[in-house]
Structures are given as structure tokens and as C-alpha cells.
Write a protein that binds this DNA or RNA. Sequence first.
DNA 1: CAAATGACGGGGT
DNA 2: AACCCCGCCATTT
Length: 120
Amino acid sequence: MTASDQHRRIHAALRDIPAGRVVSYGRLAARAGIVRGARIAVAALRHAPDDAALPWHRVLRADGRIGFPPDHPLHAEQVHRLRSEGVVVTKGRVRMSNFADQAHDSDGLLLQADEPPSTN
DNA sequence: CAAATGACGGGGT
DNA sequence: AACCCCGCCATTT
């Protein structure tokens, strides 16, 4: 499988993440059938054309933090986009336990404490 | 072709 | 929790 194939898979996997939910770079890659692919996911997003209309803002680090450094302009942009679809972002971080998209994940434990995702 | 670079992840301190 | 450190792997230098 070529590198661009991987990128396409990443993009496809990302389109499956519903609004109001998020995924980590690593899990996104895993969904695309790529192991150890966190950095590939990054490349796939960075290479994505601006008009790709991908929900790139739904991708966060495994610990729930925004990937961009706080001073980066896209950091604010991402926070805004996430909030606009109901995701609670506190100090540049999201509670993965509450907002991670678990479709097809094996870790059965789901908890639904805080703010339920609402599209507003 | 060798070396550096990331929108990373997981483990250890 | 906040760091630091090291492994990862396509892309860029």
C-alpha cells in the first residue's frame, strides 16, 4: 500500500467521525487500518487540500489536548469549531472519556458524565 | 543519499 | 499533572 493510499484511508476514516465526537491521531490511523500511524495521520491532514472539507478539528492528541501549540492561530480555530458542535474544551483540552467516538472500539467502558454532545 | 522534522504515543520521573 | 526521553515513520531538508 502506497503512502498516498494511507492518506486516502485516513481521510475516509475521518469522515466517519460524527460531529460532536473526537478521535486521537493514533486511533484515527488505526481505524484506517494503519498501525503506529499517528504521524501518518498528521501528514495526511497536513497534506489535505483546504477544500477537502475534512473535519480535521475532531482530531486531538491521545491525551485530549489540541495538537497545535497554544499560540498557533489554528489552535483557536480548532477550539472554536469543536465548541460549535458541542464539544467541551477546557484549557485546550477535551475529556476523551466523554467525547471520544467509540464506534468499533473494544474498550467497552463507556461513561456519560458531563456534557452530552449536542449539535446545537 | 543522510539528517532533521512533525497537528504523535507511551512510559518513566 | 507536568516533564523528559525515546521510538515511530512519511516527508522535507
